[in-house]
Amino acid sequence: MRTGPLISLSSGVSGGPLRQAYGCAVPFAPFRLAWEGGVVPMSLEEARRADRVVIDGGDRSCGELLLVLHREMRDLPPGTVVELIAHDPIAPIDLPVWCHLTGHRYLGPHDAAADTYLIVVSAKARPVRPDRPWHLAPTTGHDDTPADLEQQTHRETQESI
């Protein structure tokens, strides 16, 4: 059973219904505020239990699906857990790659809902290797994302591809 606001985009992608409906007032728990300070506020298990924002990508695929994600996720507070409904059979391959490119965190398929995938909104995009854009660039200097998160995300992605 899904919780959180249901955003349906099946009738079209224009207009940003999420922002119109909720502005920045998408409900989020206090622990998510810690994300702004660079602290990863939740474990995988916590993320699975957190309130969700549902984005319905419908039958869209490829760039059309990514455009929906880009538009609807860019103003969500970091740490928000998105449940993406996508009937595209290639979505479980595209989504971890897209998360690598954009810096969002891919948690994998929903364990109880078909054609649904979990993504945690990241504070900022992560750079990728110019020669192999499906891999994150090596980090230099200060990094506000703990290494264990990156390794965990990387491992999840590798397992998903």
């Binding site: 490829c62 760039g63 990514l66 880009h70 954009t102």
Partner: peptide
């Protein structure tokens, strides 16, 4: 072509 372009820009490129 535009689907590919959209995929690129939506991926932060």
């Amino acid at each position: 072509a535009f689907v590919v372009a959209v995929a690129a820009v939506a991926s932060g490129q």
